[in-house]
Amino acid sequence: MSTTRTQRKQRSLWFEAWRRLKKNKLAMAGLLFLALLVVIAISTIIIDIATNKSYYNDHVIKQNLRLRLQGPSKDHIFGLDEFGRDIFLRMLWAVRYSLFMGTIAIAMSTIVGGILGAIAGFYGKRTDNIIMRFMDILLAIPSMLLATAIVAALGTSLTNVLMAIAISYIPTFARTVRASVLTIKDQEFIEAARALGASDLRIIGKYILPNSLAPLIVQASLGVAGAILSIAGLSFLGLGIQPPTPEWGSMLSNARSYIRDGWHITVIPGLGIMLTILALNVLGDGLRDALDPRLKN
């Protein structure tokens, strides 16, 4: 019996989850890597604002055909691309698109999907049926195809790409939230709140959602990885971020034709995508373990 029954420091379930997460070295490495990416993204934005984009224009998108496809050297540690631009700098400037767009797209689908799932799970019956069948239809369309269709129809702009990805992820989140709402809904503390006369809105907001956040967080962290891949994929197909703006997917796509001339111009953006996805996935796995109450103690 490992139940302890005296008072320790007060700590919430979130705090304990964080304590468990900290012990997971792999997840912490992932978190660290992501934190580095965030710092990079923010620094590049600050540089853009401070220099009024002149640094960006001079070093990131300015072509220098004389030095094209040059391999890594002391001046350019990742080498230069097919237009003679510094791959290292382009990688750094591209971080914001992958990271922020992935995050924003997932945030949008988490909110919309979460609300839809919560409503479906809480009210059940017909409401549930209507919402979830609609989700099933969305789910039946391959997400890449859906995104391609949306972008192709509405044109290639940043917002359209975001929208396309966000929409294709909504069903996943709706399902996750609905499933956890269904299990929480029947718990006695919900009944207790009802017996106190709490309104539906209060029950959803204060009782159900906080308790169904854990699987949602895990799903979201894995979802960001998927969204980054989708953005890269769309760019690769030429439907995402347009050149000359640096973006990992389009960098990879453009480098394709020069794969025999310089290994570095495909490998570097590929590695960037891979490491980011890996970091998000190990973090997501770590979060799942940390938030799973079965592993408590």
Binding site: M1, S2, T4, R19, N297
Partner: peptide, 11 residues
């Protein structure tokens, strides 16, 4: 004994 994060539980 059980060795837990919160200390050793003398079962």
């Amino acid at each position: 004994d059980y060795e837990t994060d919160d200390g050793i539980v003398h079962a």
